[in-house]
Nucleic acid binder design. Structure first.
Lengths: 218, 218
DNA sequence: GCAATTTTTGACCGGTTGGACAAACGTTAG
DNA sequence: CTAACGTTTGTCCAACCGGTCAAAAATTGC
């Protein structure tokens, strides 16, 4: 006798129950990531998402309460993945090595998760209406914390003195650029270096820029 | 006797327009820039734009053929403004001074024309459906040209050897970041340094990063 | 096989959106 | 004034979009 479950899309303390339900929700989220990341929230339609995963619209709405619900679920999941590299950033080991590691991880994320990057960029571009609180709370706190680590390195003369928070911005900007502005990057590089090799070129360049730029001045 | 002009929105070889028509079109474009840059193309409505400039929708459609037409006009105009700093970039004078000038100009554009920056970012994020050709043609050509200037500096040992095109990407990314990700930047910096002072901090940081990062290695 | 439950679907609905249109209004030259 | 043209508006429409609903279909436990 099946245990009482009912509509999956109903809000409840305990999330989706059966294996099939979890799988279907996953398929929907996968398709939604594709659609939302390329058209933005308002530019995407439930029909597009439903088509993208071979489902009818009402069927999709059986698994999620609505468009907003899908987007929110996607966003919450994204944020965890997105902050992970910065959380890893620590003051064990050599400062320049640590920075290089962070740059590398961020660039790998731009390469491996470009849709997530674009989804995030879309949200910020439009004023971050759904994650404003998180930016001013969790993110700010995390950045402040890491900036303090960097500042300590500067005090110890291990790296050049600069504004640590703008340093973090610069790392974000340069790495995410390869995901968010991918079309432009490909267009400018042309077919010759438009393959995946551009990420290796970028890694080389960024390491040189940041490591030379931050080496302690004698 | 008024010379034959007719509907302003009609496509015609010569954009023969009265003074009033040119002014009204300007007002509309100004409002449209506001709306498109914060909601994206699909996320914006003609009604929003009409309201923003105190006009009725049909009245607005008397001056432009449609939503697409407004966006296209805005986009064409934007591109000229957008490429200007790169065009100015030349090999007269000291390389590092020239680079600093370019970074400064780009950062000033991010400060003074954030809406244009976001409009551009929106277009690229969504795959640049309307300006793909321009990216692969005009822009690529311009970048190649400037990259050659930078490469010559490297051959002369005036700046450190790196990939010139990724250098340009890095300058674009870091400067435009302050316009496109403004909400995030403000949130992280907090109220203390969230004023316009952040652009001065950014200028100082970016100059240090790029000039130290590119000084010829002894 | 049967009944309870989950999943899928087609039909439908109200609201929004881009746009058309003709009629009204304003302006200007003779 | 009047004719001709430019400008503005109210009204309307077809397409789209998010979402509901009841009923059909498939699945599951026994």
């Amino acid at each position: 006798m099946p245990r009482r479950i009912g509509r999956v899309s109903e809000a409840s303390a305990a999330p989706a129950r059966t294996r099939i339900q979890r799988e279907k929700r996953e398929i929907i989220l996968e398709a939604a990531l594709d659609v939302f990341s390329t058209h933005g929230f308002r530019g995407s339609t439930i029909d597009q998402i439903a088509d993208a995963c071979g489902m009818s619209k009402p069927n999709l709405l059986y698994y999620f309460r609505g468009k907003e619900d899908i987007h929110e679920t996607l966003m919450l999941r994204l944020l965890e993945t997105w902050l992970a590299p910065l959380r890893e950033f620590d003051n064990v080991g050599d400062p320049l090595t640590e920075l290089r590691g962070y740059i590398r991880r961020k660039l790998e994320m731009a390469r491996d998760y470009p849709r997530e990057s674009r989804l995030f960029a879309n949200e910020i571009l439009q004023g971050a209406p759904r994650i404003r609180a998180m930016l001013e709370g969790e993110l700010k706190q995390l950045v402040d914390e890491k900036a303090e680590i960097i500042r300590a390195w500067m005090r110890d003369g291990k790296i050049a003195r600069t504004d640590p928070r703008h340093l973090i911005f610069a790392i974000w900007a340069t790495t995410q650029h390869y995901a968010d502005f991918d079309v432009q990057v490909r267009a400018v590089l042309g077919p010759d270096r438009g393959g995946d090799g551009r990420f290796e070129d970028a890694a080389r360049f960024l390491e040189q820029l940041f490591l030379n730029g931050l080496s302690p001045r004698s």
